[in-house]
């Protein structure tokens, strides 16, 4: 029993280590991609590491209270948890994580965990910009949740399962088994809402740097900020893995995971680099418009 737990803990650490580094590198790479789009050289790929180290070794820090202190912890716990409830690589013991403790619904709702923690931490800073950002973020989230939920319902109806592992298993055996091909409508709806989920342009109103200096974490500094940056990498990775598992056949090896998630992320970055920013109410209306209709269509297709 103890041995099992120790092995599982070891696997978990490996899995987390991989996803953290991958997430950070991915972030750095994408910053460079964005720079290339703008005709710049861009920052070094390892710049995220330096930033996190710097933030953690700052000499001073300020705290506004217990929740301010715990907010980043919640956030990172949310990111880690979300990742840990998703099987990252199909058939791999190391990367199976804790997928046995819950299905897709658990993952979808666990995302809220970090959001809530962050929002609470931001709230306790007493800075008005934080809740403004949070309000925008939550509003946008509730809107992009709709096409995503519909898409998930559609594929759950199609495959009669809610288990992520099961989804991946059912997509094995050829590229045409991927849900992106078996259920393109659901995939389209989900991929549009993924744009909102990754909060890049055009859905970056939450952090609007000049208007509400980066919104929720406006008071966060030093190690708090460092923790948030770490989470950004992990959480991003988790979301990418989730979408890869759901719509793009999952991954049977770390390599295919890297390739697939890279491409999925690249898509959001390219969209982000090409569009200006929506206002909060505009993005709500956007998500509840065409993407929702596509989602409904995907569901209705399953009903008939």
């Amino acid at each position: 029993m103890m041995k099992d737990i120790a092995i599982k803990a070891g696997y978990t650490l490996i899995s987390l280590f991989v996803i953290t580094n991958y997430g950070l590198l991915l972030g750095g790479t994408m910053a460079r991609v964005r720079a290339k789009v703008q005709g710049r050289i861009g920052q070094p790929v390892w710049q995220p590491y330096i930033d996190i180290i710097k933030n953690n070794v700052l000499r001073t820090g300020i705290s506004h209270g217990v929740m301010f202190y715990l907010g980043p912890v919640f956030r990172l716990a949310g990111g880690l948890g979300t990742y840990l409830f998703i099987p990252a690589v199909y058939g791999s013991l190391v990367f199976a994580n804790f997928a046995f403790s819950g299905d897709l619904l658990l993952v979808m709702y666990f995302i809220f965990f970090g959001q809530l923690g962050m929002a609470l931490g931001a709230g306790q800073s007493g800075h008005p910009y934080s809740p403004i950002g949070v309000a925008r973020g939550l509003a946008q989230m509730s809107a992009f949740e709709v096409p995503f939920a519909l898409s998930v319902i559609a594929i759950a109806a199609q495959y009669q399962t809610l288990s992520v592992t099961e989804f991946v298993a059912l997509q094995q055996g050829g590229i045409l088994n991927w849900i992106v091909f078996t259920n393109p409508l659901a995939t389209i709806a989900a991929m549009i809402s993924f744009l909102g989920m990754s909060m890049g342009n055009p859905f970056s109103i939450v952090i609007a740097p000049q208007e509400i200096p980066i919104g929720p974490p406006t008071e966060m500094q030093s190690s708090f900020l460092g923790m948030l940056q770490t989470n950004r990498a992990i959480f991003n990775g988790a979301k990418l893995v989730l979408f890869m598992n759901l719509y793009f056949g999952g991954a049977t090896s770390v390599l295919s995971m890297v390739v697939k998630t890279f491409l999925i992320y690249l898509y959001t970055v390219i969209v982000g680099a090409s569009f200006p920013r929506f206002r909060a109410d505009q993005s709500i209306r956007f998500f509840l418009g065409i993407p929702t209709l596509i989602g409904i269509a995907a569901v209705v297709v399953q009903m008939i």
Binding site: A31, A35, Q38, G39, R40, I41, G42, Q43, P44, Q47, I50, K54, L58, I62, P209, Q210, P213, I214, P217, T218, E219, M220, Q221, L225
Partner: peptide, 22 residues
Amino acid sequence: MTSRYDMYRYGIQPRPTPRQAG
């Protein structure tokens, strides 16, 4: 910040709030 000088390559970037700036 523009492509001509591109300070990002030196690890320099702007932050909107003093809390996070060095």
